[in-house]
Computed example of a mutant assay.
Amino acid sequence: MTDLSADRLREWTGRRGLVSPDIPAHGKGTQARFSWQTLLVLRLAATLRDRLHVELSAYKSTLRLLQVRLAGEPFHGLTGCFVMLDVEQAMLLRSPDASYVATPEGFCVLSLQPHLDAIASAIGVTEKSVQRSLFAAMAVR
């Protein structure tokens, strides 16, 4: 789901501490557990490293901040969203707006959609969550 090898995942979530696992491994033979939000942050970190050749140690606090900001966000609520990152901050952008096109120098804007689609596919989500229509109450007794 993250396109990271097991060794790289352990390095990033353990020794280097770029992203914290949601449930750390406890002792030899146990595995750390990750929420979909944490998987999303790991995928974004891999994109920064692989495609943009960013040194991730400079983004350590930003990745952790993004992980905190994504906690509690509903999966379907991030459809079409972007994240704007620099070495000090992470902003969640709810929609592509012309005001975001002129980003401050040093910022990187990444779409969440390809990462959300990959995670949804990997965990077997087949349809987007949709709010069902409300119906009129007939009577209250």
Rank of each mutant, 00 (worst) to 15 (best):
S121L: 14
E127G: 04
G124S: 13
A118G: 03
Q89K: 11
L66N: 06
E127I: 04
S121N: 15
V87N: 05
E88W: 06
E73M: 13
I123W: 07
P74T: 09
H115S: 15
P96D: 04
V109N: 00
T126G: 15
L63P: 07
V68Y: 01
L66I: 15
F82E: 06
Q67L: 06
G80N: 11
F82Q: 14
H76V: 12
V83Y: 03
Q89N: 02
L110V: 14
L93S: 00
H76L: 08
P104V: 07
E127D: 09
R64F: 03
G80D: 05
L116C: 02
D86L: 03
L63C: 08
S95D: 12
V101Y: 08
E88S: 08
G77N: 05
G77P: 06
G106S: 06
Q89M: 06
Y100G: 13
R64H: 02
L110T: 11
Q113K: 07
D97W: 00
V125K: 13
P114I: 05
H115F: 15
L63N: 13
L85D: 00
S95Y: 11
E88F: 12
S111H: 12
A98N: 03
L65R: 04
V109R: 13
Q113G: 12
A118Q: 09
A102D: 14
F82G: 01
A71V: 09
L93V: 11
P104I: 01
E73G: 05
L112C: 08
